[in-house]
């Protein structure tokens, strides 16, 4: 019986050490400054396995910030949101809006950049075709092709700019504390605006040294202590595993 006990204990110890070493390896890579969507995703899964849904969501968001088309991160983020206490705060999206955002997310920054480049080249070719077109012929077709290419290129360029800006200045944050209160003013005694729970995704509208003005998915704004949230662009969010 004792042998069995020690055997089980040894196996459990090995498992925990193995799990810990994987987490340590991933954290070490992150500490080296490596930015990689799969790295952040795996850290998110590790945090989820240790019961830290806030940190899990934060790292899934970090993965999606680098690669918005990271499907596993997106699915896990949706999964954690569905299990979170504040899941009802997220507005229901219309089907067409969802389709738009799916396409928008599929075109991550690199894909969007390549698409923009291709559309630029196509626009240049179609422009050249239009300029060198036989003047005695009707120019409808080359004009149409050039117009379409130009509109697509400009649209793509705008989205590329937006994506690039959002990646560089991502204002999303996640509640890390089990629960936190949003205040009307950046003071602990100020009037309570809302009670939020771990793993809720917030948008930081204004950041100060100790407090941040945040907006919840259902549109409520309030101040929250910085120590209770983790920002997507923070290098060292406080987590334990």
């Amino acid at each position: 019986m004792k042998r069995m006990f020690f055997l089980i204990f040894f196996v459990l110890l090995c498992c925990s050490v193995a799990g810990g070493s994987e987490y340590d390896r991933l954290k070490a890579l992150e500490a080296e400054g490596i930015q990689n969507a799969d790295l952040y995703y795996n850290l998110g899964v590790t945090y989820w396995q240790t019961g830290q849904s806030g940190m899990a969501n934060l790292y899934f968001l970090k993965a999606l910030n680098i690669n918005s088309a990271h499907k596993p991160a997106k699915e896990n983020l949706n999964y954690v949101i569905a299990l979170s206490e504040d899941r009802d705060l997220y507005p229901e999206q219309l089907f067409l809006v969802r389709v738009f955002f799916e396409v928008y997310d599929f075109l991550n920054l690199n894909r969007m950049a390549i698409l923009t480049l291709v559309l630029l080249i196509l626009s240049a070719i179609s422009l050249s075709w239009l300029l060198h077109y036989d003047p005695h012929k009707e120019r409808g077709l080359p004009s149409l092709v050039f117009g379409i290419c130009l509109v697509l290129f400009l649209t793509s360029a705008v989205f590329l700019g937006v994506k690039s800006y959002r990646q560089a200045f991502n204002s999303k944050a996640v509640v890390l504390a089990p629960e936190a209160e949003l205040r009307a003013e950046p003071e602990a005694q100020a009037k309570r605006v809302a009670l939020v729970h771990e793993a809720l995704i917030l948008v930081v509208e204004k950041a100060e040294a100790e407090w941040s003005l945040v907006r919840t998915p259902d549109g409520k704004s309030g101040w929250i202590p910085n120590q209770k949230i983790g920002k997507v662009l923070d290098k060292n969010p406080s987590g334990k595993a």
């Binding site: 890579l29 400054g33 490596i34 930015q35 990689n36 969507a37 799969d38 790295l39 680098i66 690669n67 920054l109 690199n110 950049a113 390549i114 590329l160 690039s164 990646q167």
Partner: peptide, 9 residues
Amino acid sequence: AYPDYHSVL
């Protein structure tokens, strides 16, 4: 391996 992310841009 986890290669460091660099944008095409």
